[in-house]
Nucleic acid binder design. Structure first.
Lengths: 342, 342
DNA sequence: GCATAAAATGCAAGCGCTTACATTTTCTCT
DNA sequence: AGAGAAAATGTAAGCGCTTGCATTTTATGC
């Protein structure tokens, strides 16, 4: 096993076909420049030998890898997985390969992976959100690495965004909650440090509260990890309060699912006693009882447009503009009127 | 944008530090072979220039990439995502990078991706299951590409397996169903063509039925795509029968979730009128009402062991043995006694 | 202080591929 | 049939890195 694999090289194919390496190379890359006859000979030799071009050598020779890197905080999150799938499909249609790394939500690891991807000759990069060391942006800009940010939106971003406005979407949910008469509201969020998406969602919630005349600082915010279990624990903690909330705004659907699950275990009815909202509209949201009111994000569209944008940047035909996709509020049964308004 | 990024090369660093390229290279790869003093000089130059080694060149020079490829049918499936995450973490601890591609369940695309990964110099490969063109195995064997199969198990596999026995696990669920008196049983499965995991699950179901004295060919099998919606449609179709089943064995949790959801919409109670079982034990299984009886698969452990096994194969210290992990039957509320046995 | 061993460094070949340029073959037209 | 243009093919120079070997520097022992 330790012995080096015996990979046929261009030269082997050339010898087998009785031509020069240049001809073989042309056969593979620009077939129209080769005569019908030799092409047949060469192709025959190619699959006779099971030849596969050596990528590293090609990258080196043409200084172009057709690899696009993407770094996501985690792959365990279905939400990123779906967007990546769309990205991958779109990119492979355009002849690029997507190389995905996950940073485990660590900016340090992310920075290392960015360098590694660039070292691997990645032609472009997808990054999630905007919270990272400014040095990273400087590096990317100096190296002229085409980069697209996604999963969020901002006007003043260092690279074009193809995403959506977390703040605004969160505002919309929170407003819908307020309109139903809720005044005792709590927030359950993912950690907001180094995570602009989570932070903007909380900010959106807060703004809606403020516009309703509520004081955000009187609203409890629980920050916790991304899991059903954590959502459940957060719910328990909230219900222990002297004055428990009648509505819980969750930063994502997984936390909301945890809240609902624990509520059902504790015999607390949703939405008559407590309303719950989520964010992302993952599959789970429609399966859970009661169905979850949440924000729908057009992941596939986002992936598609992001892919197109990045390739345009690489090929120099992009105007540098950002895209902000619309999200939509999915009103479902987990949100009801405040108990006093029933 | 189209202008080539200006990446500093080893030579630039060497010049800046006033040494030869060889010394810089050694600084980066075998620091103990370089004197303290020059190392400091070189390192300073390195981050002065923001130098990142060119991966393609290195691969070419050492004929080793430290890249491991994995090809999954889809990334949209949470189940694969979790295993991959574990794989990635384990591999990166050992100094390898995981490159993931998805084949969209197409053997043709998969074969192309395998070639491409090998061309990219991948040191090893993870593959899901065993159903693929024998030529692929021949190719891999000729090239001596260390490969680990996963997500299933078989004794006579062309490469070591680190997975679990789908057939046996499916047998266990089906047996549990039979033991509760069910005789009118239906199966809802993912497409079994070119998918040994799905096929083995159905075979396991069938064997259990046979051992209970039931004739598998009298049991309806619906094959459909992997989605909640499809599960729902399958359920509808089954309930239109003159003699509808009292238990539905689903090939995975997503289909089972669809079944349960549609049942609730149709006002058919689970499990009093129909029992439902799944496979995979994804998060959804514990959130849905009623909680889903299913098979738990130790994905993270599988990812870990698979990573370790592959690296051993690459480094020539592996005995070539396979690993079959235990699954466990999670008995939850979606499975009840057959109506007549109530 | 000098011979010798050991450590540090430099030189240069080569990894497999592409491509500009040079050369040969084939075609077209008279 | 032969000149000239066009198409096909070959030659060889790199792409950025590692590493065996040669060379220089530093350390060691007497």
């Amino acid at each position: 096993m330790a012995s080096a694999p015996i990979a046929p090289r261009l030269e082997d194919v050339a010898k087998a076909a009785g031509v020069s390496t240049a001809t073989v190379s042309r056969c593979l890359n620009t077939p129209q420049k080769v005569s019908e006859k030799t092409r047949a000979k060469v192709m025959h030799a190619v699959d006779q030998l099971g030849y596969t071009p050596h990528f590293g050598a090609r990258v080196m020779a043409v200084n172009r890898s057709f690899i696009i890197g993407a770094i996501v905080p985690t792959m365990e999150n279905a939400i990123f997985a779906r967007g990546l799938q769309a990205l991958q499909e779109a990119l492979s249609d355009m002849g690029y390969t997507l190389l995905v790394s996950s940073s485990s939500y660590s900016p340090r690891i992310e920075a290392a992976q960015i360098r590694s991807l660039i070292g691997r000759g990645a032609d472009g990069l997808f990054l999630i959100g905007q919270d990272r060391d400014p040095d990273v942006y400087t590096f990317l800009q100096n190296r002229r690495v085409p980069t697209v940010l996604t999963w969020n939106f901002a006007q003043d971003s260092p690279f074009p965004y193809v995403g959506f406005d977390n703040r605004r979407a969160a505002y919309d949910v929170a407003q819908a909650v307020c309109l139903r008469g809720h005044r005792d509201i709590a927030i359950v969020s993912a950690a907001t440090f180094d995570n602009d998406r989570a932070r903007h969602r909380v900010e959106g919630f807060h703004q809606a509260l403020r516009d309703t005349g509520l004081e955000p600082c009187s609203v409890p915010v629980i920050e916790t990890t991304y899991s059903i279990e954590s959502g459940g624990r957060a719910f328990e903690a909230l219900m222990r309060h002297a004055h428990p909330p009648t509505a819980i705004l969750c930063g994502n659907d997984v936390l909301a699912a945890g809240v609902i699950k624990r509520a059902s275990e504790m015999g607390i009815d949703i939405p008559t006693r407590v309303s719950v909202t989520g964010f992302d509209d993952i599959e789970l949201a429609q399966v859970i009882t009661p169905r979850l009111t949440t924000v729908h994000v057009p992941h596939r569209r986002m992936g598609n447009i992001a892919a197109r944008t990045l390739v345009e940047m690489i090929e120099g035909t992009h105007d540098g503009g950002s895209v902000c996709l619309d999200t939509s509020l999915m009103l479902r049964l987990s949100l009801g009127p405040a108990p006093s308004h029933a």
